[in-house]
Design a protein around this nucleic acid. Structure first.
Lengths: 229, 229
DNA sequence: TAAGCGCAAATTGTATACGATCCTTTGCGG
DNA sequence: CCGCAAAGGATCGTATACAATTTGCGCTTA
């Protein structure tokens, strides 16, 4: 786990931030275990702080804490994966509409800068960072809509989306969704709420369609079945 | 329902549940302070457990923890109050539609039982309990829709709605919204998704229209008194 | 009398020690 | 050789002790 320790004592927020980013960028894969002592050593704090951080990430859906077993990066089930994107499809289109009606020039510039960074990350083959920036793009739109409650929910959904993508994405390399983001920015700039709403709806459907969310009859995950080929 | 200290050591969930219920029923008013030692004595556990419970309630939006100051029942601002009901208006209608398409006879019976309890509580002049049951009614519908992610969000929204109502409700005594709930159950029973969606939308608008936009100072309540009923 | 300063009490934040639980391994018996 | 059980180690859960911060009171002084 390539997380850098802080020179001075890290806060709960520092730990949550760094660990979250590691999950978002798929440096920590679903199922990975986070031992408390290990995190303590990495950040140079006591277990009290680490446990607060892990608990916070559990609330966000990033971790699953099993009693007396430890904290693990969540592994969303197929049902949860579908629910995440159903919820996003329910929330984000109208949020994009609201954003279009409120977007300032500075907002647009920020989004364009965001897309540029995303492209740069892809050019560097840093698909993990690109994925995180892609998520941040959606969050930025929610922020522009000036709906903090929705934004908070969306933050959780984007986090879980990252886990879903780690588990169910078909082609790991191709993340060619920047066109959709460009089109969205255009709609936001022109204040076209209808268009922004439709584009966002289509964009989410597009992502959804690229997930392999078919029922895997191996849901049993029986070891016997898995070994017989 | 027994409140006050348990004979055997209470768990974090016990404390969250009882404190949450106290907030939902307005026995704990927005702005009330929850001192850690006091909660410790009430439930007979150490501060470690109490702090976990308070932190969990903060994540749900019920409490606001100020560093080195303590935990207080949240006081949603006017903007937050609007956002809560805007979010509910966004989420709940489609949830009601999904529920209508999936409702079983047992589900309908449960909802009717719920309404009966709510009426009984109102007859007993226990408006606090009636309010909580009213919120649970909405959560029950989300559960019927089989959307756990949405249900989880709605749980937070219902919690915050309780705070909003405590602060901004016009007529504290009159909670005559059971008609809307009855109509909803009828729509759910007949599997009429369109109607359920419309009824839910209207119901939420109705509640929203009864909120008072003037600023109001909420009285503080003693924790001990609030938990003893 | 009102304002300002400072110390003490109360309250929360953090670290650590101890106890409980779970998993692995090892040893014995079949 | 295999299966079951007990012991040991590793890890987490809880309580308590100590440190840091805030708050409120009382004193002083203009």
């Amino acid at each position: 786990m390539a997380v850098i320790a802080e020179s001075k004592t890290a806060t709960v927020e520092d730990i949550v931030s760094q660990l979250s980013q590691a999950v978002h960028e798929h440096r920590l894969q679903p199922g990975a275990k986070l031992r408390e002592d290990e995190v303590c050593d990495l950040f140079g704090v006591s277990r009290t702080i680490v446990r607060q951080a892990l608990r916070a990430m559990e609330f966000e859906g990033l971790l699953t804490i099993k009693k007396n077993r430890g904290a693990f990066v969540s592994k969303p089930t197929l049902k949860e994966a579908r629910e995440v994107f159903q919820a996003r499809a329910l929330i984000e289109p109208s949020t994009a509409r609201a954003a279009a009606e409120r977007a300032t020039a500075a907002d647009i510039e920020l989004l364009e800068h965001h897309i540029k960074e995303e492209h740069a990350a892809l050019d560097r083959d840093d698909s993990g960072l690109a994925l995180k920036l892609s998520g941040d793009f959606h969050l930025e739109i929610a922020r522009m809509a000036d709906q903090q409650t929705i934004e908070q929910f969306l933050r959780q959904l984007v986090s879980r989306s990252s886990l879903v993508i780690a588990l169910y994405w078909r082609r790991r390399n191709a993340l060619c969704e920047s066109n959709a983001h460009h089109a969205l920015v255009d709609a936001l700039r022109s204040g076209d709420g209808d268009n922004a709403e439709e584009l966002m709806k289509g964009h989410l459907l597009d992502i959804f369609s690229q997930l392999d969310l078919r029922d895997r009859q191996g849901g049993s995950t029986s070891l016997k079945d898995a070994l017989r080929r």
